[in-house]
């Protein structure tokens, strides 16, 4: 009898697990029609499992997601980056310096479109409305001529360097520049020029 009971117990498990075939289910029903013990066991089990499934009706409390999000640490990639910075302090300092420098350089480069002229000579003609600086014919400018945000037309003579920043330089056929002459359009050139200029003027 105990052996037969074992068989039906495992058959009940099979049915409850939805693993029993049609024949097996039929067999169990036949058996339960005259066996109170198995019927009771099967009913109790079914009731229990239904009850357990009822336990699904639980939901997370309100504000759960917000709480989780506020508890999150910095993202993993941020932490990795931070570790890298800690490992390479010199590179970090250098790159930080570079970033800040280029930011300020760029800001200065982009800011202001006002024509500015740097020269010792009174013979230079400045026309702000058309962003133009003219070295008139027959005149001689002694020393360097630096023009920012404007074009330069040289009809006379410059005894020194001519630098045009963010502008064009036009030479009349009679024009003459004894020193260096250059136009600066690129921010890198400009920064380089400013930097050089800074050190040179300090040297002087």
């Amino acid at each position: 009898m105990s052996c037969e009971k074992e068989i039906y117990m495992s058959l009940i498990d099979k049915v409850l697990d939805h693993e029993a075939s049609e024949e097996e289910q039929y067999e169990l029903r036949q058996h339960m029609s005259h066996c109170d013990f198995c019927r009771e066991h099967f009913t109790a089990m079914t009731e229990l499992l239904d009850e357990l499934r009822e336990a699904r009706h639980v939901t997370a409390p309100e504000g759960f997601t917000e709480s989780v999000m506020s508890r999150l640490p910095l993202s993993a990639t941020k932490i990795k980056r931070r570790r890298w910075f800690q490992k390479h302090p010199v590179l970090t300092a250098a790159s930080l310096f570079f970033v800040l420098m280029s930011a300020s350089v760029l800001a200065t480069w982009n800011e202001g479109n006002e024509l500015s002229v740097e020269t010792n000579s009174k013979h230079v003609k400045v026309i702000p409305s058309s962003h133009l600086v003219v070295v008139p014919k027959g005149e001689t400018v002694k020393g360097d001529l630096i023009v920012e945000n404007g074009d330069v037309r040289i009809e006379g003579k410059v005894e020194g360097d001519v630098v045009v920043i963010k502008g064009e330089r036009y030479m009349a056929s009679a024009g003459e520049v004894t020193g260096d002459s250059k136009e600066i359009h690129q921010v890198v050139d400009w920064a380089w020029y400013k930097l050089k200029h800074l050190f040179i003027s300090e040297d002087r």
């Binding site: 639980v58 939901t59 997370a60 759960f64 997601t65 989780v68």
Partner: peptide, 9 residues
């Protein structure tokens, strides 16, 4: 949002 109910339960 997708899994909070399951995990909480």
């Amino acid at each position: 949002e997708l899994f909070k109910d399951k995990i909480y339960r």
